[in-house]
Amino acid sequence: MWTALQRRFRDGSSSPREYGTAMSLGLVAPLLLLLLIAFVYPVGRLLWNSIFAPDATLVHYGRIIEEPLYLLVLWRTLEIAFVVTVLAFLLGYPVAYAMARMSGRRAMLVAACVLVPLWTSALVRSYAWIVILQRNGIVNDLLEEAGLIETPLRLLYTKGAVILAMTHVLLPFMILPIYSILRNIPDELAKAARNLGASAPQAFLRITLPLSLPGAAAGTLMTFILALGFYITPALVGGPRTLMMSTLMAQQTTELLDWPFAGALSAVLLASTLLLVVLYRRALSFNKGFKIG
């Protein structure tokens, strides 16, 4: 390797391709090791245990199928993740669009509004929703004062509350990829469309929207996957009545200490996630091979 390095110095040329396989492996090894120890091993162990604890058995998977509760939770998880993704897209796209159009101080202000929540812990944001939605929280107080309701509504620990809070928490993950794509679409394109006879909505629908689809795909995928496995917010805002897969798994591991069953649950969630991702990518074959610019 030393002579190779020397040669490289002499030639004065070095491109990434020149680094041998050994060197490349050496460079990624620390991260690889960390991932192996901290991620692959525990997850693998969990999944392994779901089948081989104590002997090879499918009894844990059987339980999931037999018990309607578990299938209900899985279905609810998928449903909530789907609704959250759709809501985040509908709310996030206009924000990303506005951000991409703005410049200077206003753009920074809006970017801050999007990013600050991202930097705030999800725990804090979930507690904030509890404060807002609880029995004597802000919303109920306001409604009572306005005379619209007599007794406080039950807002917290409902599916609606989970969807609301999760949409809020995950919104930046939708906005940022869409924003970065929109930002790279030259505004000359929309102008050209207008010049060629398109109304403003037509120019958006035919030019800007299709060109931003890769960002929308990334944003929706990211939000959906994050929503499927989201723990803190459903646990706090959803309570025991709105169990999701993550809260169910936490119960199994921390309260019931049924690790093999938790492993089976996570295997099912993992498989459903992968399946949906593959189907999604199939359905939207964006990679038509065009470049922006």
């Binding site: 394109l189 102008k191 469309a193 207008r194 006879g197 398109a198 109304s199 470049k291």
Partner: peptide
């Protein structure tokens, strides 16, 4: 008058061709 109702052709400095449309689709757009 709005830009789309002026019936003025324009060639932009960097052409502003629609990258997701073929040549024929670009020309057919107006």
């Amino acid at each position: 008058v709005a830009p789309n109702r002026r019936d003025i052709g324009m060639v932009f400095q960097r052409y502003a061709l629609f990258p997701h449309m073929t040549v024929a689709e670009n020309v057919a757009f107006p």
